[in-house]
Design a protein around this nucleic acid. Sequence first.
DNA 1: CGGGTTGACCAAAGCGATTTGAGGCCTTTT
DNA 2: AAAAGGCCTCAAATCGCTTTGGTCAACCCG
Lengths: 345, 345
Amino acid sequence: MNLKEFSEILGLSPTTVSRALGGYPEVKEDTRKLVLDAAREHGYRPNRRAASLATGRAMAIGHVIPTALNHEMVNPVFADFIAGAGDVYARAGYDLVLSVVEDGDELRAYRQMASTGSVDGLIVHGPRLDDPRIALLQDMHLPFVVHGRGPEDSHPYSFVDVDNNRAFRRATDLLLDLGHRRIALLNGNETMDFASRRRDGYVSALAGRGLAHDDTLMFSGEMSEQNGHAAALRMLSGADRPTAFLVSSLIMAIGVRRAVTDIGLNVGKDVSIVTHDDMLSYLGNGTDVPIFTATRSSVRAAGRRCAEILLSHITTPDQPPVQEIWESDLVLGASTGPNLPVQTA
Amino acid sequence: MNLKEFSEILGLSPTTVSRALGGYPEVKEDTRKLVLDAAREHGYRPNRRAASLATGRAMAIGHVIPTALNHEMVNPVFADFIAGAGDVYARAGYDLVLSVVEDGDELRAYRQMASTGSVDGLIVHGPRLDDPRIALLQDMHLPFVVHGRGPEDSHPYSFVDVDNNRAFRRATDLLLDLGHRRIALLNGNETMDFASRRRDGYVSALAGRGLAHDDTLMFSGEMSEQNGHAAALRMLSGADRPTAFLVSSLIMAIGVRRAVTDIGLNVGKDVSIVTHDDMLSYLGNGTDVPIFTATRSSVRAAGRRCAEILLSHITTPDQPPVQEIWESDLVLGASTGPNLPVQTA
DNA sequence: CGGGTTGACCAAAGCGATTTGAGGCCTTTT
DNA sequence: AAAAGGCCTCAAATCGCTTTGGTCAACCCG
């Protein structure tokens, strides 16, 4: 059923029908109601592609998610981020076009989405320290919003980020205040912007107490349960073992907890854990008292906000960029406690 | 840059250029090479929407993922499933259109995708026991593939599923063979097809040994870490507590493990756990010896296979439906052991 | 040498919407 | 009663591509 057929059923011209559906004022209210009712009854809906072609608006937003085929990992925060963003898109009548590409092929994916005109804007996921994508997107004059932050030397652009440096500085300070001195950092891949900032926060908190950081207590890599377990186990079985862990993701923290219990120690008593918690829907950090003491920020809310900003850039261009740096909560849970003097007993 | 402009640069007609890019035989190889090189140089790519309109093919596949706004959970297997499917789409030149809708609004989403012609086919996620979506899709004559199975009374349709009944029957048998008699089932929501089949497998294995199932040892609900923890804790603190748990997801099993260690028991010694493992990329079940004994089937591979089947239905219609039921591995890990006679000591 | 093939290319007609500019009807004003 | 002005509606152009149905020249063969 196309517009022509549909308008013939109604005995109206395509123009009038289109205007009625589009909500334009040049059509009598009675007529509009007639048209809307008939559309519902006959199940008519304008063809998306034809409408896009005519208006020049794709009514779709692109998300490019990298999947490292060598190390096979899909970042689990995508699901929640996209749930948040997708909700906003749906309300505004936008589609969400997902492109799954191998790491390193992202530039090509962006270029293609832009030149084929299949999206009106893009979300940039997981910016790296030296990320070429942002410059490319600025060149292409396609609206975009970054989840996180990339290089800041270029022209300003819109982003939503959490204050990773501050969050991990505060978390480290908390552990220091509890008397811990051997604090391990299990971080994400430090070529990623967020991980780099978290490391800086951790290092500067230590430096603030005149402590040097110890490379043997620092891990940087994919934030999987396995990696958390392996790294923690290695550190705990070394001499002069850590009494506390600062971890970049809840999943990784679960691996740390398993390592701690594996060797017969107690989380929150013998070993403290502080983790970052993205508030993923399927991995809640306890209902009553949090399981883990955590720096907490909802990635779903970030998805929602990124989508809102992007849509506003699309509907009214030439706005100044929106840059939001969210403070994350530091919530106390059951995984931290004071460093007891007699720990090796 | 559109086709007209681009073909003028080359001094050729739009027809020839389009044919050259489309790989049609009516164009001299030299000319084709010329066109391809120029396209690369000038960054010309046909407008997707216009091409779709002309051919009638959207070159896109729709995925509708439900998000229950009340209970706020996004199924974490989506990320991996979509990574698998997206990879196949990308190679075939298809886009992946994601629609995030509130539970119950799925029918509307499907109807819309079909009538606006924005996709050539659909993947159905998470079929329920009495799922109206499949009948609707058959009515609309839009190709689709179901991940899992829905009602089987209607016309046959394509699906990829694991043999959930058999997997959980075997897992239950294993625990029975190890001497366990009080075996708890922590299942997904049993209005879902997969969970219902797993329950049947569990119940029939018990019945095979003349055992009745005990409602107080059965949980059905969202497969979150919290739910696993809460349900296990409740069961373990009751009288005549279970000695083994059969769990429907690794995340939930992690919650069970936490509950077991919380009350000072040992996983694999005092309490056995068998879980289903979707082989999510960020939640590997150990590298060497599996952490959990598990029924194992890759959801990413399922995504890939569903995509392949769907694309083949789209490119050559009127094929008979493809129905695949995958056997899942039963891998032994460190979380199971014999039921010791003196257990309450 | 001429009719029939074949090869390489092109003009123009869609695909299904939106939107401009023009026209028809009815009410209001002088 | 005629002119002006509103309010609706319409025909046709447009978006950028694909594809049908040619045209034209070169080639082949009896």
